[in-house]
Design a protein around this nucleic acid. Structure first.
Lengths: 375, 375
DNA sequence: TTGAAAGCGATACCAA
DNA sequence: TTGGTATCGCTTTCAA
């Protein structure tokens, strides 16, 4: 343990022969003090290397920094991990004047604008937001900007200049790794397809073009079909994938590049192609676990929802407490999960009496607090 | 912004008709108060959901939490990233009574015991430590334990029960992914070899056996030679790898499972086998970058030194500030880097006039603050 | 065994 | 335009 050594307002004040309050005002850019005094204070502060004591500030101001967490409710989903990441990262600050306020909405694209407005109405200091339908959020983004409330977008981008930062997966890396691995694992004469959400979404577009680039570089003669878009709809994902597979029975590999992996996998199964395709998918969901174990799915790219949450909070808090502006976009590298390291992610049931169907269930993946998924 | 709502010592005191100081003493387990009072306070505190305001505590105590950072000096190495991770994670707390104290030592196994002793002599509150020669640290571990100074081991484990936690790479995952990918990328009739540091080190042993298990499962007929140990010595790594390669010209794949990738790669080159082997390596080092670009190295497993640092600090701080004991071992998943996503890690020089040899130099990798390596 | 009170550093109000 | 001062929640003497 050591004694505190930091420079205080008092140090600056006595050096300049001013009062503490004057120094405080100068540093906070309050109105009503001479430009000269202000300049002197700023110079002395920089000179002495003054850093405000946040403990004292939080203590006296008696106010909490309130941060809105706007995520889809959908239970037992990746959003649970996102929320847990945010909470865990916020935890050390909860005892020091930080407060998280949840504004959950039923699902992506449903009620998210209302939730955003609700957060702004509540007068929060910052917002962490999973955007579903960016168009519907445009007004709220503008309002947040006019209120000077910083917004961090999570998981997908919302094309708005009025936000502090976006934390999302490194789509280039996902697409490139999928393309690279697919190129090498695919038998000599196979064609390739990709299912995606919506090519109008930046991340989805990036994953596809990155995949395409890698495939072309590694096996220029391989046919890559146009992406199968599912527009984030389960039924569309199933229908369109099934239709595509029935039309292209010669397909060699499939990259399921976004969510909705379960219906896409079901389509593969119903087309009778399970085990005949080289498949890479995205994230961990209940249905993919046994397929990876069986080897019918070669691997999946885990997009680290927990880390997304942690980093989003971290950026926002740092900005609110110190004014440090984060990069406009923070991209997280995916984890590759294959058969060999699947068990590092899927919580093993320790109870021998546990129902067989429970093994690798979504609950144990998402709520088992598997350490590997907490990064 | 919101008003602070937390339960304070005053709330407990007035509820029980006691003074604030008595309540404070009861909660801190000070001696000299009646067991009954203490019990009442504890009950009321739990009842009201009291959480100490750390801001106030830090403010009044006027002491800093001092944490020693014991890492090898070696400039332009992964240790720079480790230190940066620790500093970045500590940053928000530096303004709130936390202080980092560096005890660097020349290199692994050289002066590390002295550095450890130095930290303990300085009376720090916790130690983050990269252990090189665990045997030489045994006494210091014991002393730390007797002083109740928590120690977090970083990057490699030190077999001591007297530590708070160990943060290291998930060796099982590294070995399994390497084995899985190697199994699939290797031509039909190739044998395999692994270079490693020292099989007495848990992580190294785990990587090898995990690799072996995956190879056996995927291609049972493939010959896997005994590991080539280099005992963390550059010259030994070069000599032994070269000797091995000259004795086994039929080798199909090589997994460079720990550091010392550069001399191992040089051995491959000098044996005239570059381009004829399927190679996976570990971490990013200057020499591997062009080989990945050329395709002569299939991929490398990046072990995320920056994240190691961040997480080590995070665990230690949480323990020191709240008493929450972390898991004894935290394993980080590796990132897979292949040709397609190499540029996400290697800082691209934007100046066309930059020397060609600068591209992918170790400096730009390690110090370019590439976002992808900051996870 | 308990209570009263000083004071940590920064803020905000009121007075000058 | 500036200075004085009460205050935040908590720890720690010093008194009782």
């Amino acid at each position: 343990m050591g004694l505190k050594t930091g420079v205080t307002l008092g140090d600056i004040a006595s050096k300049l022969g001013l009062s503490i309050s004057t120094v405080s005002r100068a540093l906070q850019d309050h109105s009503g003090l001479s430009a000269e005094t202000k300049a002197r204070v700023l110079a002395a502060s920089a000179d002495l290397g003054y850093r405000p004591n946040l403990a004292a500030r939080s203590l006296v101001s008696g106010r909490t920094l309130r941060i809105a967490v706007n995520t889809p409710q959908e239970i037992l989903s990746v959003y649970d991990l996102v929320r847990k990441g945010i909470r865990d990262e916020a935890e050390p600050f909860l005892a020091m004047g930080v407060e998280l306020v949840d504004f959950t909405f039923p699902r992506l694209g449903e009620g998210e604008a209302e939730a955003f407005e609700g957060a702004l109405d509540a007068g929060v200091d910052g917002v962490i937001l999973v955007p579903g339908a960016p168009a519907s959020l445009k007004n709220s983004f503008a309002r947040a900007a006019s209120m000077k409330v910083p917004v961090v977008c999570l998981l997908t981008d919302a094309p708005s200049e009025q936000k502090l930062s976006t934390v999302c997966v490194n789509a280039v890396s996902c697409g490139a790794l999928a393309g690279e691995l697919m190129s090498r694992l695919l038998p000599a004469h196979g064609s390739l397809a990709v299912t995606t959400g919506d090519l109008k979404v930046t991340d989805h577009q990036e994953k596809f073009s990155s995949f395409e680039r890698c495939v072309q570089r590694n096996r220029a003669d391989t046919l890559l079909y146009d992406p199968i878009e599912n527009h984030e709809s389960e039924s569309e994902a199933y229908e369109r994938t099934l239709a595509f597979l029935n039309q292209h029975r010669d397909l060699g590999g499939l990259y399921i590049s976004t969510g909705n992996g379960a219906p896409a996998l079901r389509a593969v199964e119903d087309a009778g192609l399970l085990g005949k395709l080289t498949i890479f998918s995205t994230n961990l969901f209940r249905e993919v676990v046994p397929q990876i174990r069986l080897g019918t799915v070669a691997g999946t790219f885990y997009e680290r929802p927990y880390s997304h949450g942690r980093i989003a909070f971290s950026l926002l808090y740092k900005y609110l407490s110190t004014g440090i502006v984060p990069p406009p976009r923070v991209s997280l590298e995916p984890f590759l999960i294959m058969r060999g390291n699947l068990d590092c992610f899927v919580h093993q049931q320790n109870h021998p009496e546990a129902n067989e169907t429970d093994r690798g269930s979504i609950e144990s993946i998402l709520l088992g607090e598997t350490l590997a998924s907490m990064q």
